[in-house]
Design a protein around this nucleic acid. Structure first.
Lengths: 195, 195, 195, 195
DNA sequence: GATTAAACGAGACGGTACGTCGGGTCTTGAA
DNA sequence: TTCAAGACCCGACGTACCGTCTCGTTTAATC
């Protein structure tokens, strides 16, 4: 999904350069963080000339986005047969991913990213991809009869993942072990006792 | 709450300089956004020498944080007597604030901010302040008997505000009119019909 | 002799930039003196970006030295066939050169210059060049039989030129017309009447 | 001779401050060299407020000159009864002094110093003092009949001391042991064998 | 297998902003 | 009223990194 350009000659020099650069980018992100990522360093580590990077990605942001989206495919959507377990597992996985330097960097990049067409498109593509996949947990639960068909999958997913992002990105507080479960339970049962 | 230093001579030159600089910072943020804020411009607009800014705030980030926190005191906590109304009003207000350039800039700055002591302290102070005040909505509801005393005010507030921040900061999707109400309802009643 | 780098493409942009910057430097030195020479001004006058100057020369001093050494090639070594005339002519020329703003600035720069490797090398190269050439006046005289082969060319040249430098640099007294001749005569004949 | 101002209350606070500052200046010069001398450091070391220094000396240069001239009184004029010995001893002493950090700094300061009235006067006073005293070696020799009364004392002294200054200030070459003697001999006897 | 166009290597340069440094002035509280 | 303390003004220096430009060289697809 992070393919920005048409690959004319797969496996040729171009492809090698591209792969080396994206790898180096992620690697350096992990090591020095977002601010510490310099195009020149990426070039050096990739064994490629800086000019070649600018030629292909035009600027630092494009490179970043391309590299990070490629690195974000690790998130898997569980399918245990029970919503509660699915949601807890997903939130836990997400928290773990966001705790890695790569995950952290991805978040920051998305948060910082401007609104030029390129970034906008990249961002939209990323969230569309994630929404679509994670909402399957809800639609499957509805199909199984676990949840009423009146639920709004998007809202549910948002209320599930946003507290995790919130802590990672804004308050920077740790996500303690039971947190995902408590979020899921509050979400499923509500906080008022009776109606 | 954004007071970083002891005011030795309140009203003296130092205080005047400080105020002028913070005002200019917020003003320019509103005008040119986060990326467009240059320390040199702030200095010029504040009628102060650039060096004086660096002397006091050390770098751009510290200046930003100080200015933004000062500008974030507008958020009020409602007290209507009914949780649902309180929470909806608060979330709506928050969404409105985050839609302003100042609010946007505040979010971004907090998200970008590094982990040096200065920023960490500023961030912690900010969230402590906001948490403490907003959780009053929950504790009041518990006192009134509207909510059971088993609810975790912190979790509730997080689940209330994080979807708003999430959209503003990450997906950049609009917050439609009914959204706060739907979040509150899901939170209060839960999404599973029966247990 | 002030060539610090290998010219890869002689006459290319690099060479043009280099020449323009050195010219501008000497020109501004002439105009505003040593203290008044700002790197930014040089850049502007040379039609070159300030960064380019810092990239190549690293700091103001290196630029100065390079420019001044380039400007000091005007000193010619006379060859009249008679030592006395040669020495007087040389000392007179030297005095004239040192009286120009450029000469003045050269002196000051050499006197001020620190002992970092770059400056040290520049200084050594300069004096080696000047020594070697000026001592030819003595060796030629010895070859002609005008002077005994026991004379130390280096000492003689030092005793010839140092009074000139001394006045220009330290006492700042004028070098009156007959001064070089009197120095040369004292040097050749000695000041004691008999031996 | 380095008294720039009238001492109103010798021994009073003013005098103490003045002495402490000048001492600190020379001390720091010795330690960090000319470039490394900061007014703020001097103030701190002297246990005096920076403002007090600026009040009295007005700027860094004046302070420097005042301190250095005070430190240059160590040069003594020998009187052995024989010109050759006198001159050699004097030149040797001079070389030794100029080799000390203080001597070095004095030279540099004089060489760098601008032409504003203050510096001009300080410089003139310094050289007048040194000239007057050192030329006594020549006039005494003339009185003794050792030298003809046609010699120009000023020229002789210049030709004696300038090679020393030359090496210290410009070429930065070491002054080897026999050098003063060879200069003196060349000066007394001349370098041409016979006329 | 020779040709040719795209991509790459190399390196200087333009440009913008950041942050530093240090000399020197000015305000203010306190003695 | 004077003085110590310290913030401030001012103007430079030097740094860092982004992104551009030019030219020579390699590579890989095409003839």
């Amino acid at each position: 999904m992070s393919e920005t350009e048409v690959r004319r000659r797969p496996g040729g020099r171009s492809a090698r350069v591209r792969a080396a650069v994206l790898d180096a980018t992620v690697e350096l992100l992990r090591a020095h963080g977002l601010e510490g990522l310099k195009v020149g360093d990426v070039a050096e580590r990739a064994g490629v000339h800086e000019t070649s990077i600018y030629r292909r990605w035009r600027n630092r942001e494009n490179l970043l986005i391309d590299a990070l989206l490629a690195a974000s495919e690790v998130l898997r959507v569980p399918d245990t047969g029970r919503v509660r377990d699915d949601l807890i597992a997903y939130a836990t996985d997400l928290a773990a991913f966001l705790a890695t330097p790569t995950g952290h960097a991805l978040e920051h990049t998305l948060a910082i990213a401007g609104d030029d067409p390129v970034m906008r498109q990249a961002r939209d593509r990323y969230w569309a991809y994630r929404s679509e996949r994670s909402q399957q947990m809800i639609t499957r639960a509805v199909a199984r009869g676990e949840l009423p068909d009146t639920v709004d999958p998007r809202l549910v997913i948002e209320m599930l993942v946003s507290p995790v992002h919130f802590r990672v990105l804004l308050t920077r507080e740790e996500i303690e072990d039971g947190m995902p479960a408590r979020v899921v339970d509050a979400l499923l049962a509500g906080i008022s006792p009776v109606r």
